[in-house]
Design a protein around this nucleic acid. Structure first.
Lengths: 209, 209, 209, 209
DNA sequence: ACGTACGGGACGACCCGTTGAT
DNA sequence: ATCAACGGGTCGTCCCGTACGT
């Protein structure tokens, strides 16, 4: 059992390290600017090693995105369980802020890369996830400005995360992002860790406090 | 005179059409995903024709971005002439909203493409322009959240522009964007629900108050 | 052991055959006139195969030149060990004659090709080797004609080697070249008419006296 | 008449300047390393101007070589008029030395460039000229070493010319080259402008004294 | 006598992916 | 589980030459 476990750890070790190397290079050079050769070189292996663990380039990209998309999935699921539309929106904003704060660099790369967007749109599961994520803010009203505002929230939060100074920790960053996101959406902002806002608001806790 | 004018139109015709084709393809396939061969094919010419009009790929990209960057330059110049910090920030937000509304699709591509960002950072004039654009919002206060908020504004507005429905005209879109931008920045939003601008405007509005 | 040896022979086979093909084509078409496609076609492989064995065209060229440059290095080292200036000059002349006779065709190509000269001048090791080769004849006297004479020797010997009739063997050619070289330099010519060397030699003679 | 003369001067002016520019670039970058575009740029004209004056690249190359080949032709003609074989050889050596000294840089480029050699070999007039040039030294004897020596002379003299220090004037250089050439061929050298050799030798003056 | 605008075809350098051996 | 070796294709760049205008 021990040797088998050790073996399977080793087995998946290279796979995990390949993903890590890919992440690092995606951040440095963007997705399109990173070749399989560069990833292999980063680990000191050959390209063939990559093709052993992944059938092709796209599957490697998907594997890189998986943890990030999983976080989105959880956030969407949690938000969808809220009862009021306002609570759903607030949960989504807080969740997306937390998610962006947690994946400071990779998040921006994945959120804005054209190739990533295209790949996601071709996988039904992911594209429907994106739609549900949007629907949590927009609702099903045909408010002409809602879609625009919702996009502004998502792109704004994702884009702002990379701009954070290096010495700002994840919690503070998440606080700021939640703040901006709520304000964009028309909610009043709660200042975390500072003097709490006395005004009552649609309280719908979960990830905060 | 007529023939001369006709000639000079013809002369720059291919060059202009090359830029148009590049714009269209950049929007469809992103910058990195567009090869010179694709652009040439779009016009039914060979790659050699491209190299006659542009010394290399980067210069073609720069020519594509020029009009967009020129709009940014004008907006920054206009905003910098305001006296109070709040007026400068508001002018910048309104200007960027107008700019994003005017260049609905190309703007998003240029604003988020990693390769574009890199090319711009290598040209001193453009990189300093980007810095000034940011400084108009941030000022020189060392507010830890200001930079984050400013990035959220720019990325949010640029990202939201593409999401607008096709039948929404430029003015309405600009109104919505200005709205979100102002709210993000903590200013009160005016003129919601697309109340039409009463003031006459030279271009399609934005830099005046 | 046998299979391992056979394998390691096979392993470097294509690489060696690429160099051979390059040598043959360099002789026929000069260095500048030989493209990677031509070399690949000669072996029935694709350009990609070349790029697997060499990182770029220049490294292939360097690999082609290496054995030739190694011979120059040995000759220079041997000549520098002589005590008197006259002995050093004579050793260099005899060595260069032997070297030119041994590399009848490739030597001429490499010695005169402008691109080769440029590449060598960019590698410190090679350029200093060329300088030392020259210094062995010129010494550090400021004789105005010495440099000219030395160049005449090197270019003359290298250029004359290709002119040898096909049925002339290496030893006879070397004898003639040594002869001319010595006479150019003002030394008395010995062993004309191809009197065979009585001394035993490791390779095909040249650096011994 | 005056305007016509002025016109035809202007006419051929560009042609001559094109040749000069080509010569300068051939010296700097070798023949193969010089494109028509580079030549056009050097003069500030377009490639079309080149194609007006020369039907193609090869004809331009031929025009560049013409003056140089003309000098060879004269030298060969003069040498062929001598009666004894020794006199012909000496005349050829002196002539080639003078020629190499006069065309210090271009001579080396043309004498060693593989492409030039190939082009010359395709034009009967030039290839026969080269043969006659060689025959003047070799004679028609089938001396196995003669051809080799003759090549050494020509390549040696041409190659040595470029090595001359910049402050050495043409006359001195010619003297040195004549010296080496004669010594290679087995003749005793005459020191020009220095103390003349007292020994008698096959005197066959012409271009010297 | 020369410029404008372009075609057609190379070139070196990468790319992703596959095959067989170990 | 990994490597050596290679195919097939595309990229940006540069080449020579040409048609047409003035």
């Amino acid at each position: 059992v021990a040797s088998s476990a050790a073996k399977s750890e080793e087995v998946s070790d290279t796979r995990a390290r390949l993903i890590d190397a890919a992440v690092a290079l995606f951040i440095r050079n963007s997705v399109a600017g990173t070749s399989l050769q560069m990833i292999a070189d980063e680990l000191g292996v050959t390209k063939a090693a990559i093709f052993y663990h992944f059938p092709n380039r796209e599957q490697l990209l998907l594997a890189v995105m998986e943890p990030y998309l999983e976080q989105i999935r959880e956030t969407v699921h949690a938000a969808e369980r809220r009862r009021s539309a306002a609570a759903r929106a607030d949960a989504m904003i807080r969740g997306y802020a937390a998610l962006s704060a947690r994946n400071r660099e990779l998040g921006t790369v994945l959120a804005f890369d054209a190739h990533v967007t295209k790949v996601l749109s071709e996988h039904d599961e992911w594209s429907s996830l994106i739609r549900r994520q949007l629907a949590l803010l927009v609702g099903d009203t045909s408010d002409r400005s809602a879609t625009i505002k919702a996009h502004a929230v998502f792109r704004g939060l994702a884009g702002a995360a990379t701009a954070a100074p290096d010495d700002m920790d994840e919690d503070e960053l998440r606080g700021h992002l939640t703040d901006v996101g709520r304000r964009m959406w028309g909610l009043r902002a709660t200042r975390r860790r500072s003097a709490p806002d006395p005004q009552p608001m649609s309280r719908s806790g979960g990830t905060d406090d």
